[in-house]
Amino acid sequence: MKYVFDLHKTMLAHNLILVYEGEFTQEITKSILAMAERNMDAIGESSGVKRKVFNVMVECLQNIVKHAEDLNEKGEDGLRNNAIFLLGKSVSQYLITSGNPVRNEVIESISSKIDQVNALDKDGLKQLYKEVIKKGEISEKGGAGLGFIDMARKSGQKLEYSFEPINDEFSFFSLQITVPRED
């Protein structure tokens, strides 16, 4: 049972205040948001920072609900939509991190979307947001194609990401957004 202690130490070392691993649904999203809000309320976090963290968390969590791929298509091993969400808090910032499996063929399109967002400044992001919203297409999965743009706008920071190979079909997509605590 040493892994329990190890996990506990890992969480402390990384300043993690909330970790969820498992299936992601709208109901789970609401529960995670409620826990994070209670946590921020309990320490008297400023309303501006709370709103930004909430904002980024929603886009992150709903991305997973919409896009996490089934590693096991039949869902027999309970791996359906399995993904991880982490919320970290240090003196200076909140770290919002998600990780989920994606098909290898979407790596390029995800990377280029994030790289495009990261290359833009505040005004550039505003312009891109307006262009995308006016084009106005809601995807089959219910996304407006605005998630990464919004995360970058609300956090004011670059989005960090990586892809770790799982097998020939899938990779593990990790995404991290920083929200500074000084408003």
Binding site: E59, I133, I138, G142, A144, L146, D150
Partner: peptide
């Protein structure tokens, strides 16, 4: 108080 990006598109509509 808050709306997500999917809602922003619909609010425009």
């Amino acid at each position: 108080e808050y709306f997500n990006t999917a809602s922003s598109k619909l609010l425009l509509d």
